[in-house]
């Protein structure tokens, strides 16, 4: 019972994990992208569309990431090059993503993913690891897409904390002028990482439409993008911590469904992820410290020759 619940928690947490990682890497470059919901929807419709058209699972994944990247580049152009207000640009991106996905999505209403792709993302036991008692089955008897999320989370952690690029990225997000003075190409760093962030959000959406659901629904993300933005704070901008943050909320997402027969209003239980998000946000703003603070340059446009 518990094991099967936790097994589903990983699945339900995966879209959140991708999106949270995406937003972490975006915010680390100093950009608060409130368009996560829109990017996820773009990824969802991109992944589904390409999967549906080609029946190729790999192309479907790339499709989701690619469309997410395109959306993020629009945001990057507005906020990096044109120095637009990040809050409003992000909101615009969400409206855009929602619009596009439901426009294009009308073609797919009621359609299912091709069997080839559903088969490709069947759970798959990793030898040895899946034999670990209890957690082995939960973590290592999942689908390939989920394994991809593990790999990405860990690589992002290593990238951010142990490589030169990561170090430079942190500097760009904290103090772009300082980074600039050491010869770091601030604009390039911002563009690249906003784009990577968009790709990851796209993957989050694509996971929903290709694997988790796997048929087309309008507004398939149902607010997960916004929760991901809150999870970034919960995870204090740390890709490793994003793992458990995402799974906790993955659990909250399905708890209402699981407790259906407990004679308690499902609609009230469905509030849980949102209520807990608020609690988490308030909690993390009460105990602030230098090590889990947002990047100092967050949402401040940078312009070298400003006078």
């Amino acid at each position: 019972m518990i094991e099967s619940f936790l097994y589903s928690v990983i699945i339900s947490g995966t879209p959140l994990l991708f999106a949270t990682l995406g937003e972490i890497i975006t915010e680390k470059s100093g950009h608060l992208n409130l368009g996560v919901e829109g990017l996820m929807l773009l990824g969802a419709v991109g992944g589904f569309g390409i999967g549906f058209a080609t029946s190729n699972p790999i192309l479907a994944i790339f499709g989701g990431a690619f469309v997410g990247t395109l959306g993020a580049l629009v945001y990057a152009f507005l906020t990096v090059s044109l120095r637009a207000n990040q809050v409003v640009s992000g909101l615009a991106l969400t409206i855009f993503g929602t619009g596009i996905s439901s426009y294009v999505g009308t073609i797919f209403v009621g359609k299912k993913m091709p069997e080839v792709i559903i088969d490709f993302f069947k759970p798959f036991e990793i030898p040895l690891l899946s034999k670990i008692p209890f957690i082995g089955n939960i973590l290592f008897n999942q689908d390939l897409f989920i394994y991809l999320s593990y790999i990405i989370a860990i690589s992002l952690g290593v990238y951010l904390y142990n490589t030169r690029f990561g170090l430079n990225l942190i500097a760009v997000g904290e103090n772009p002028s300082a980074a600039d003075s050491t010869g770091i190409n601030v604009t390039l760093y911002k563009y690249v990482h906003i784009a990577i962030g968009g790709a990851l959000c796209g993957l989050g959406g694509a996971y929903l439409s290709i694997v988790e659901v796997p048929q087309w629904q309008d507004n398939i993300t149902a607010g997960r993008g916004w929760i991901a933005i809150a999870l970034v704070i919960f995870a204090s901008w740390n890709p490793y911590k994003a793992l458990y943050a995402a799974y906790i909320f993955g659990g909250l997402n399905i708890i209402g469904f699981r407790m259906q027969n407990l004679n308690f209003s499902q609609n009230l239980l469905d509030m849980l992820p949102y209520v807990v998000t608020i609690m988490v946000l308030v909690g993390s703003s009460i105990k602030k410290s230098k090590n889990n603070a947002p990047p100092k340059g967050l949402s401040i446009p940078y312009f070298r020759e400003e006078r």
């Binding site: 507005l78 044109l82 991106l93 409206i95 855009f96 619009g99 596009i100 439901s102 426009y103 009308t106």
Partner: peptide
């Protein structure tokens, strides 16, 4: 689909933000 109107709205917003 009426979402076309939504796309148009977001486009107007994108361009308006950019025009600032």
């Amino acid at each position: 689909p009426k979402a076309a109107a939504q796309i148009l709205q977001s486009m107007i917003l994108f361009f308006a933000i950019g025009s600032e």
